[in-house]
Design a protein around this nucleic acid. Structure first.
Length: 121
DNA sequence: ATGATGACTTAAG
DNA sequence: TCTTAAGCCATCA
């Protein structure tokens, strides 16, 4: 599986995250079959253009702690993601240190490995 | 070839 | 709940 296929696979899985649910980078990586590529899931999402069709609900992907990954100081990506999540009815809380997070126990999506469609092409 | 960089994760204290 | 440390691996300078 090359890079392009990996990206396609990631998009395919992310598109299956149901409304009002969130998944983690690591989980997506596992579902795609590359459990050590959590970081690259983020890379794939970064390359996403806003007008892809069908749309990819990138905002439903979080880190394993439930925190919305900061895109670096001075960026607004995290805040925009929080806004998308709230727009769909998912509760976003803020920690003392100012981190935005979602309660994975409540909103997390944990499909049985065999219960989802893996074939993207 | 080499070293730095991430929209990361897990374990430990 | 934080902070550190170590592991991870494609991409880039």
């Amino acid at each position: 599986m090359d890079s392009a296929e990996f990206h396609s696979a990631v998009y395919h899985i992310v598109r299956q995250i149901p409304q009002q649910h969130v998944a983690t980078y690591g989980n997506i990586a596992r579902l795609v079959g590359m459990p050590h590529h959590a970081r690259h899931v983020g890379q794939a999402l970064k390359f996403l253009s806003p007008d892809v069709n069908p749309p990819v609900p990138w905002h439903r992907v979080l880190s394993s702690s439930g925190a919305i990954s900061s895109r670096g100081p001075g960026t607004d990506g995290a805040a925009r993601q929080a806004q998308e999540l709230e727009a769909e009815g998912i509760e976003v809380i803020q920690t003392r240190s100012g981190e935005l997070k979602v309660d994975l126990q409540r909103w997390g999506w944990n499909p049985e490995p065999g219960s989802i469609d893996i074939n993207w092409s």
